[in-house]
Nucleic acid binder design. Sequence first.
RNA 1: GGCCCCAUCGUCUAAUGGUUAGGACAUCAGGUUUUCAUCCUGGUAACGGGGGUUCAAUUCCCCCUGGGGUCACCA
Length: 473
Amino acid sequence: MNIKTRLAPSPTGYLHIGSLRTALYNYFFAKKNHGTFLLRIEDTDRTRYVEGSVEALLKTLKQMHLSWDEGPYVQSERLPIYQEHAQMLLEKGSAYYCFCTPERLKELRERQQQVKQSTKYDRHCLSLSTDEIQKRLAAGESHVIRLKIPDGITTFEDAIRGSITINNEEIDDQVLMKSDGFPTYHLAVVVDDHLMGITHIIRAEEWISSVPKHVHLYQSFGWDLPVFAHLPLVLNPDKSKLSKRQGDVAVEDYLAKGYLPEALINYVALLGFNPTADREIYKMDELIELFDLSKVNKSGAVFDVQKLRWMNGQYLRAMDLDALVSASKNFLTNDEVVTDEMLKKILTVEVERLEVLSEVSDRVRPYLSISDYDASILVWKKSTREDAQAQLQGLSGLVGSFSPSVFENVSLIEHAIKQYIESKSLQNGNVLWPLRVALSGSEQSASPFQLAWVLGKDETLSRLTIALNKLSA
RNA sequence: GGCCCCAUCGUCUAAUGGUUAGGACAUCAGGUUUUCAUCCUGGUAACGGGGGUUCAAUUCCCCCUGGGGUCACCA
């Protein structure tokens, strides 16, 4: 049997982190089994359609390296198929016309809530005679088609949770075809999954409660059931379903902040699934190879941005330097003009203190121009202003005497300066601290040797002069 | 509220009918470093409660509690 999974988003905006996880598991499962990963756009609700969201969705999926083998199918282009299938159900007696107005339905619900009854359709239209139905249909009266849920109990198997049973009394006579001629999710999803040959439905847990309706649909049509696998939810820190309000939920947001697709995939994939537990960095290929539906957790997982940041840092440090350079460029502002060569040097020394690419801008700026700083920070805590001045003076002479070849790499610079310190019997801190501040304008920076290497001889000397002027002012 | 699902450190998780209950993030302490970060070492920290079953339960069963999801002509 050819394994076939699908991702079926609705075009209501962005790609949710939870949807990414669903997409990933569907993708992993299909690839691992040499099957097919299909994409289907579920746009049967015209009122919620967001212009441009399909394009955005496809773009994000591509950015995340999730390529589909089939589709994208678009449900709004398949209306006749659903209408035809709704007719089949009508003929089989598994569905019926309903002419109730939204107002009546609303009142009904309110009445039921007041009496603390479960809110479900009262089958008011089930008893309509064929004649009356034909008459009202002919008169063009607004109507829907409802699924007729039989008495009894429904049990289905979930690949992650095992057997789930529900009393049919709990199930509502779900609307299948809306009055606008569009199908509801429930009809469309069942018809499409069957017609498209989906073998495994892997989706979020929030769908569990509607599975019984789908089971009745499959049974009414006389179709075999696919395998259901309901994923635990991705949660906010307070354990509720991951939502806006409590942080970013769109994959696009994370991409824009400079998280790498690989890191996002790695982190999100591990929310609810762990291949071995003795390791946390996995490439896509490994995740596919190791993925196992039966090892997916049952309980929800809190999305921890802190750990994502850490993981992104790991990916940044493991990244090829040229790739890092080109990825970083997108995060520089217009007035931060750097040559590739310069950016490469900067990133070589700054990558270890980088967690997300959006921080690149702040890291690059001090190398391009030194910002104003207070002269007092040039003085090492165990030293004096006079000493700092003397050391910078000495360093200025020393660096001025360096041949260009010294600037070819960091260790030559380091060696030369340390030798100087030793030969003069000076203290590291007294010399190196003022040097760092002079070159970076900050108390926190890369090592002074790295700074000098990135800046080059001329700029290094120039910044030493600026520092000396500050001290003598 | 009805129904459904779930329950190991703060968080993501591993393992097991008999273990000092393991790893990672975070956190704390120490080391490296002239600083921050990186890196290294170490520490704190978990089986929700009550009944069973069993020689033995974190593990299997039941109840409770807690958390979540769902109750639309939305998906």
